[in-house]
Structures are given as C-alpha cells and as structure tokens.
Simulated assay, not measured.
Amino acid sequence: MPVYFFWGADEFRMKKAVRALCDRNLNPDWASFNYEKIPPEQSDAIIQGLNQAMTPPFGMGKRVVWLVDTPLCQRCSADLLTELERTLPNIPDSSILLLTSSNKPDGRLKSTKVLKKHADIREFDTIPPWKTDQIEHQVYQVAKDVGLQLTPQAAALLGEVIGADTRRLYNELEKLKTYWTKPNQALPPNAITDLVATSTQSSLQLAAALRQGNTDRALTLMTDLLERNEPALRIVATLVGQFRTWLWVKLMTESGERDTRIIAQAADVGNPKRIYFLQKEIRNVSLPQLQNALQLLLSLDYSLKRGAPETVTLHTKVIELAHCFKPV
C-alpha cells in the first residue's frame, strides 16, 4: 500500500518507523532526488504532497513524500477532500505518501474515512503508566528488536523503572545487550539493578501510598516527582487511571462477580491474571473510600487545568486523599 498515516504522542517510536519505511523504499544513491519532507507551515503542503506522490521517482528505488504533522484528520476543506478522493486511489506503487500527526484522527471527518479506506494507519501513542501489562509487553517487544532475552522478573523490573519512555527503553536495552555476555541465556533482574539508573519515586508508588493512608510518604513522593520536573497533569492522570481501575475491581468484586476475565474487561485491565493482585491491594479499602478519592482527583485535575498553583494544590489534595484512607 503506497499511503501510510502514522499518529501518536510517542515521537521516538514514530521516527523509528518513519526511518524504517524510508530505508526500505529509498535507494541510497538516489535518495536526494526522491525524498521530500514537507513541513506543516507550508500553506499548500497537502496539495504539494499529493502532487509529488503522483510524480514518478528519478533513477532507482521509490519516491517517498512525507507530510509532517499534517492537520488533515483534524480539519479538511471540501476542495481538499475532493483532491484526496481523486488522488489517493491513484498513487502509483513507485511512490510512498507518508502522513504523520501527534493527534488522534477525528473519526467523524470525511478525510479520516478516506484515509481509512486507502491508507495503512498505525498508532504510536504513549502507553498510560497504569497499564503495566502493556508496558511489560512493550519491554519484551523492544528486547526482541535489539536481540536480548529477558527473564519475566527482569522485564517487569525494567517496565517499572522506565515506564512508557521508549527512547530510554531502547537506550537501556542496547546498553544491557553490550554488557550481557551470555546471548543464549535470559538477562536476570540483578543486571538491571546494577546497570539501570532507578528511581524509587513514581506516580504509581504515590497511588499506593495514598491508598495506604500514608500521608508522610505520599507528600515525600509528590515532592520528589515535582523536583524531577514530572508534569503535574501527568501525575494526576496516572493517579486517576489507577484509582479508576481499583474502583472498578472493587465494584465488580462486591457485586459478586468471580470471573476475572469479566472484571478485567470492566476495569480495562489487559491481563486477567492481574485481577488477583489488584483485589489483594484493595482488600482493606472500602468502595466509598475509592469513590471519594476519585472525586477528589477529578476535582484536582479540574483545578490544575483552570490554572491553580501546582505545588500548593497538589500537596493540599495529597493530604485530603491520604486522609480518605485513614483507618477509622
């Protein structure tokens, strides 16, 4: 398929995919003639990209035309839509038209529907920190890409330490591969402890401290996160996701549901085996406590988005949240 649309906030993974696409299709000797990168500031960027994609390549290899950060799936005029409908089905196999955007395509737009019909659409969005099973799966995939075997404990530890930061994940795995001299054996977790810089502060650990009603530790973790320049809204998004998961697991469990697959589906947990551990985490927590905590978090998110001072607002809410889980 000669048309590709890559979207998502994970810029590092997207750039790797763009580079791989270019390497597969461009002849190095003729790349300067057949590669066109068109920035979004150009007023006629989309029209120029479509025209270039219809032009035969010069010399060997294919022509690659890249429309960078295109707004095509966020807004599209009637004239531009007509041009898309006319051009996309007729782009020759000797050309590659690549469109990229950090924003998710708006499925309501006709331009998005046209692209879905004629393009290979790939998502490169960042995995939310609370979706630990997806992060762990990504660790395995990247380890496979760099040619390194990991034990399950090592993969889990690496996912916990690095999270969804794919740039750092690739860098650390390349470093570990250089260090590991036993290619036929899986890398153990102690190698990660020795070589990967770890931080004991994370938003998920903050969520655990709040759930335990440990005000002092929660305040310390929040201070450390802010000192490491962790964005306040990202911290809150992680907390909201984690508490929402706990709330759904508690709600389904107290309603009498025993099938972990059904609970996992309701709680948006990819691996049903995690449900047992989530239930264990909230065994001593009541449903009203979780409901109250989620309300406070959503209020915090609203206040920050309205411009409330970050440090004072976050520390005040941390105290309120931890108080929700204080034993009566």
Rank of each mutant, 00 (worst) to 15 (best):
A237V: 08
S199E: 06
V236K: 00
I319Y: 05
I38V: 09
L50C: 12
S299V: 13
D259R: 07
E136D: 12
P272Y: 09
N184T: 15
D106S: 12
A17E: 07
P92Q: 12
S303T: 10
I192A: 01
Q48Y: 11
K144P: 05
A143C: 08
K131A: 14
L81T: 08
A31W: 13
N171P: 01
L296D: 13
H323N: 15
T82W: 14
W180A: 03
E83F: 09
L173R: 05
P272T: 05
P28D: 09
T112I: 08
A143Y: 07
T166Y: 11
N190L: 10
K131P: 08
R63V: 05
K116L: 11
L294F: 11
H315P: 03
N184M: 14
S255V: 09
F124I: 06
I46V: 02
L298M: 12
K116P: 02
L300M: 00
A186W: 00
L225W: 00
S255R: 15
Q52E: 13
A17P: 04
E310K: 03
D23W: 10
R19I: 14
L81F: 14
N284F: 15
K273Q: 08
T245R: 10
V318D: 06
L294Y: 11
P272Q: 07
R108L: 07
N184C: 11
L158P: 03
A322G: 05
L67G: 07
A186G: 10
P28C: 04
G213K: 05
P71T: 11
S102Q: 11
P288G: 02
E172M: 09
A218E: 07
L219D: 04
V139K: 04
S94I: 08
D194T: 13
W246S: 03
K16H: 09
S101M: 01
I162M: 04
A308K: 07
R24D: 13
N25A: 04
P56H: 00
R211G: 13
E85W: 02
L304M: 11
G159R: 00
S303E: 12
V312C: 11
A17L: 04
T70N: 02
L219H: 03
A31H: 14
A143S: 07
V285A: 12
F5T: 04
D268K: 15
A17G: 07
R244I: 05
T100R: 06
L72S: 04
Q265C: 14
F33P: 08
R211F: 12
Q295M: 12
D259C: 06
R283I: 01
L290A: 01
L304T: 04
K273G: 02
D125N: 13
S255F: 12
R283S: 03
P189G: 06
D10G: 02
L173G: 05
T316K: 10
P56W: 00
A197H: 13
L296R: 10
Q295C: 14
A322Y: 09
N25L: 00
T112H: 08
